[in-house]
Amino acid sequence: MSAPAEKFSNLTQWILPIGILVVWQVLSSIGFIPGRVLPAPTDVILAGWKVLLNGELAKNIWVSFWRALVGFAIGGGIGFALGLANGLSRRSERFLDSTLQMIRNVPHLALIPLVILWFGIDETAKIFLVALGVFFPIYINTQHGIRTVDAQLVEMGQTYGMTRGALFWRVYLPGALPSIFVGLRYALGIMWLTLIVAETIAASSGIGYMAMQAREFLLVDIVVLSILIYALLGKLADSTARLLERLCLGWHPAFQKR
């Protein structure tokens, strides 16, 4: 693909969101959408500018981002480790998997009342919920990835004298990577979802809290701003994951430049 064409295809993805913004602005300006229901994009930007100046926005974004990151690291780390263990060892799988599947079938957001009783509304509660939500997609996809590594390649590694360590690093892990990335992207979605709900219900800081506070005072522009920030953060996380995917899966036919 030539350079200008590539630049154009990168821009393509922005046509729709920007178009929606323009239509929204026009409909608000001519008074078709009342400001009480949905403030115009310019009003949202003004509101954003205000909270940005008084430092509230940065603080809340940072708090939410930090919760998401810590929860993701804990839940994702444990999920990845158990996924590897249960993918590689039948014994470990027999011992753990059915228990984990039972827990998986409880919607983790249903635990909010219990989590508030246990941890109150401080950081632990949110991080716990995020970790729990993120755990399962990472766990299941890691295990599935390891399990579905081409058995013929494993056999090849064995006949060529690879040690167990070499087999893991050079056959199992790279073979499982495409599936692990699917889990990663799915987990990132769950991460924001969990955080939004948790912060909306029980928090004293963060973007969800900011939105709930604004609702109390009927500040629709701040509520809309919060929602947009969530969308941007979610997009940012997904783009990061896709970038990593492209870097790590360059060998995969699906990621090769045509």
């Binding site: 013929q152 390649l153 056999e155 090849m156 590694g157 006949t159 060529y160 004298g161 690879m162 050079r170 056959v171 790279p174 073979g175 990577l177 060998w251 995969h252």
Partner: peptide, 24 residues
């Protein structure tokens, strides 16, 4: 050493790295 019916190359390794698998 063995050659299988399928090439059984590691898809995530370059051609040269795949040959190096045979080096032990």
């Amino acid at each position: 050493r063995v050659m299988f019916q399928e090439p059984r190359l590691l898809p995530w390794a370059s051609v040269l790295s795949n040959v190096e698998v045979g080096l032990g």
